[in-house]
Write a protein that binds this DNA or RNA. Structure first.
Length: 863
RNA sequence: GCCUGGGUGGUGGAAUAGGUAGACACAAGGGACUUAAAAUCCCUUGGCCCUUAGUGGCCGUGCGAGUUCGAUUCUCGCCCCAGGCACCA
């Protein structure tokens, strides 16, 4: 054996071995315990990045460990293959999205294979495959039949640059999540999934998923945004019209002095018609429609509105309330109308101040009496009702219930719930996606494509248009069709589905990827689902993960699956970060653009000192990326995997360190060397099976350390997934094993054989190629993955003597050794006898002695 | 503004049914081997103090209180950082 771990030859050898033996291919085995884990499938963007490396390494460790633990492990991989970058790249490179995507998949698959990931590649799926999206279309039709999908003309988030509609989830701070351009509002007919029907259920189950991180559940809960409140109907003066509002503060209804409608509210135009405000309202509404979301957010503090000329009546006080249209009223939330209570809502307060509207205090804080004219901000806290007729004196929390009850009695409103969550708009005016399987017939209206005609295949011969506009509407061969109802000429729907639809059910397809009769084989799904472990970036906490939960509910409601939650355990891994380097003049710099040693580095372009900036998520724009290929070439897959797991626990951010990788490489070589040193002498030896009492103190200690390590590593792999501490434990074992010399005594060789074999097994999930190589050295023909995970022996952990810590008034003052079963009295006696302890007690009176057996004695003395 | 995490050596990070703070590694320093370098191996490494250099003393887990024999861990108040949401009535 060589001095350095020769990863190149070894890794290729074992990768072929696994592939030839089909070691990771699985099938349902009734009666055998299953484990289904998978990681978020990648978008085939070109090549894998460090985030992928980290994500898939974490999953692979668990998969390999569970196999050795005897589970039937399903560990699949696929491609989230539809999406805009493919179109953009195709235009830029004068190729076709299909070709671009498939080439990327081929290359990235080869990269993943180089990492030694244990996937069942026979189950590989790509969402752009017609046999995949066929079933998505099929489901769409089922949902349409059940009224779970609808079409509505509505204002949608529109990105001009990407030339498409965006879901609310894809709008970040008023800008497109993909290109960063401000998002505008545009009125278009769109297809929507009724996700809001499941808002309550999605929320309820957030309390029933102990396997999910609290953080993700909280983000989902906030996203769904449930508010308990009331709907109150305000009659419009001099008309039969009624304006319903949603409020969470019905306790303040006596203080409502005006009303605000969203500029898009359908009543705005009608109310203003014929009044002298008509023109002003029209101008305001037009101005608001032209304002994009970003500037609305930025100017969020400046409240603005226009009187519509109409008045409504407060149903409790009879007060005439002017109806305004205001920029802070949102059409998407509640009813699009707000009852404004300036004394107790900050937005209403600011609006009232600006337009000179009345402020009426209806809640006084405890022991204080507010005066409307003296308030500088709204009072939103709790208190007692005033100016509220029969409700005066009530605690406002009680009034919430009482006033809601009165609403129902008077027939002017009711208790109700509002959610922040909106229905999911899934139409995309884009080419590279799954076609929506609907037909527009001039006679029959909108008709679904019959099942026998599915899939509606995305024509791959379409020529892409400049600016990213979809070619489908002008592709006659696609658009022209016949109506399945009347047989007459009809047009196909040319919108495609949001790619998040594709990724909302792929984990079900993995269970039976080749099924031609249905979305999936029920038996296979019954066996494998729900998935036991899902791993991916936290950035999908409210997008993909919420949609997947929704989809599972849809399938459940359609009777296709028996469960509601798709993933019992979720692990959200942290970002991969690296320090940035920048030049005041040239911006961010690649490492090779900064010359010189660390602190004295200068910009290669201008010679100015390089500023080493903050540690940021790896990104091309920050020029702080590390290419996995570089690592695989230079250190190999095992070291790359080892490093990713060792630097930090999986859910924390991983901070890249060049020295850190070197350290992982050194460790790998160190274990390799340890094995090399002993290999020849222990090859023919027996594995130690004797009693630990027969061993020399040194060997005994090593033997115990080995069992400790097995225990520690097993717990980490099984429950906590803190691989960094598992690796630390293995390092300690290696360090201790290094202290043993070959003295020719049989027990020494037997123990060393046991230790080295155990090391190979403990490391096999992390550094599988290395482990296989060591395993084969011992003459094993089978893969190490086929051998059972080692079990620690509790008896081997026992110590003859335990270290007892002695404290005086809680401070460490001495230590001694004692047998584990030493009783409290003896421990106390021994502790008091400790020489340094005596010094601290001196002539002070001992007040109390606390004894924790096998651990510590604390002597409390007078201060 | 609201919600959720998190603040521990020069660095990444260990340690929580409350019980030796700093495991393991990186970096740094010293030594061995070598003609030399690389590699490797060994040692030191939280800060401060000492007229006794020790099995020595004091301080130390963002800051301030509290509970306790004992707090990185529990409670309360504050500060800072990261992530999420953001005119949600």
């Amino acid at each position: 054996m060589e001095d350095k771990y020769p990863f190149k030859a070894i890794e290729e050898k074992w990768q072929s071995f696994w592939e030839e033996k089909g070691l990771f291919s699985v099938a349902e085995e009734q009666g055998r315990k299953k484990y289904y884990l998978f990681e978020m499938f990648p978008y085939p963007s070109g090549k894998i990045h460090m985030g992928h490396v980290r994500n898939y390494t974490i999953g692979d460790v668990i998969a390999r460990f569970k196999r050795m633990r005897g589970y039937n492990v399903l560990h699949p991989m696929g491609w989230d293959a539809f999406g805009m970058p493919a179109e953009n790249a195709a235009i830029a490179n004068n190729t076709h999205p299909s070709q671009w995507t498939r080439e990327n998949i081929d290359y990235m698959r080869s990269q993943l294979k180089r990492m030694g990931l244990s996937y069942d590649w026979r189950r590989e799926i790509a969402t752009c495959d017609p046999e995949y999206y066929r079933w998505e279309q099929w489901l769409f039709v089922r949902m349409y039949e059940k009224g779970m999908v609808y079409r509505k003309e509505s204002y949608v988030n529109w990105c001009d640059k990407c030339a498409t509609v965006l879901a609310n989830e894809q709008v970040e701070a008023g800008a497109c999540w993909r290109c960063g351009k401000p998002v505008q509002q545009k009125k278009l007919p769109q297809w929507f999934f009724r996700i809001t029907d499941f808002a309550e259920d999605l929320l309820t189950y957030c309390e029933r998923m102990p396997g999910w991180p609290e953080k993700v559940l909280t983000m989902q809960k906030n996203w769904i945004g449930k508010s308990m409140g009331a709907e109150i109907r305000f009659p419009v003066e001099g008309s039969d019209e009624v304006l319903p509002v949603f409020t969470t503060r019905q306790d303040t209804v006596f203080g409502a002095t005006f009303m605000c409608l969203a500029p898009e509210h359908p009543m705005v135009e009608q109310l203003a018609a014929g009044t002298d405000q008509e023109e002003a309202v029209r101008l305001f509404v037009e101005k608001m429609a032209a304002t994009d979301r970003t500037s609305k957010t930025i100017e969020s503090y400046e409240k603005e509105g226009v009187f519509t000329g109409a008045w409504c009546l407060n149903p409790f006080t009879g007060r005439r309330m002017p109806v305004y249209t205001a920029n802070f009223a949102l059409m998407e939330y509640g009813t699009g109308a707000v009852m404004s209570v300036p004394a107790h809502d900050q937005r209403d307060f600011e609006f009232a101040k600006k337009y000179g509207l009345d402020v009426i205090v209806v809640i006084n804080p405890e022991d204080e009496s507010l005066t409307a004219g003296e308030m500088t901000e709204a009072y939103t806290g709790p208190g007692r009702l005033v100016n509220s007729g029969e409700f005066d004196g009530l605690d406002n929390r009680q009034a919430l219930d009482d006033i809601a009850a009165r609403l129902e009695e008077k027939g002017i409103g009711k208790k109700t719930v509002s959610y922040r969550l909106r229905d999911w708009g899934i139409s995309r005016q884009r080419y590279w996606g799954a076609p929506i399987p609907m037909i527009h017939c001039p006679t029959c209206g909108i008709v679904p494509v019959p099942d026998k005609d599915l899939p509606v295949v995305l024509p791959e011969d379409a020529d892409l248009l400049e600016g990213g506009k979809s070619p489908l509407p002008v592709l006659d061969s696609f658009v022209r069709t016949t109506c399945p109802g009347c047989g007459g000429q009809a047009r196909r729907e040319t919108d495609t589905m949001d790619t998040f639809v594709d990724s909302s059910w792929y984990y079900l397809r993995y269970c039976s990827p080749d099924c031609t009769e249905a979305m999936f084989e029920k038996d296979a799904v019954d066996y494998w689902m729900p998935a036991d472990q899902y791993i991916g970036g936290v950035e999908h906490a409210v997008l993909h993960l919420l949609y997947s939960r929704y989809f599972t509910r849809v399938l459940n409601a359609l009777g296709l699956v028996d469960f509601k939650e798709p993933f019992t355990h979720l692990l959200t891994q942290g970002m991969v970060c690296k320090e940035t380097a920048s030049c005041p003049e040239h911006g961010f710099l690649y490492p090779e653009e900064a010359t010189g040693e660390d602190e004295q580095s200068v910009c290669a372009h201008c010679g100015q000192p390089v500023v080493f900036g903050r540690v940021e998520k790896m990104s091309k724009s920050k020029k702080n990326v590390v290419d996995p290929n570089f690592l695989l070439d230079r250190y190999g897959a095992d070291v790359t995997r080892l490093f990713c797991l060792f630097v930090s626990p999986p859910e924390e951010a991983l901070q890249w360190s060049d020295q850190g990788v070197e350290g992982a490489y050194r460790f790998m070589n160190r274990v390799w060397r340890l094995s090399s040193i002993w290999m020849e002498t222990i090859k023919s030896a027996d594995v130690f099976k004797g009693e630990k009492e027969d061993l020399s103190p040194r060997l005994h200690s090593l033997y115990r350390k080995m069992h400790q390590t097995i225990k520690k590593v097993s717990v980490e792999f099984d429950q906590r997934f803190h691989f960094n501490t598992a690796i630390s434990a293995v390092m300690e074992l290696v360090n201790e094993a290094y202290g043993i010399e070959d003295d020719g005594i049989p027990e020494t060789r037997q123990v060393m054989k046991l230790v080295i074999q155990t090391l190979a097994m403990l490391l096999s999930p992390i550094t599988p190629h290395f482990a296989e190589e060591i395993w084969a050295f011992f003459g094993n023909q089978e893969s190490i993955l086929r051998s059972p995970w080692p079990e620690h022996q509790e008896a081997a952990l026992a110590l003859d003597e335990k270290l007892i810590v002695v404290q005086v008034n809680g401070k460490l003052r001495g230590k001694f050794m004692a047998a584990p079963d030493t009783d409290k009295q003896t421990l106390e006696k021994l502790a008091l006898a400790c020489e340094p302890v005596q010094k601290f007690i001196g002539d002070k009176a001992v007040r109390k002695v606390i004894v924790v057996p096998e651990k510590l004695v604390n002597i409390v003395v007078q201060a």
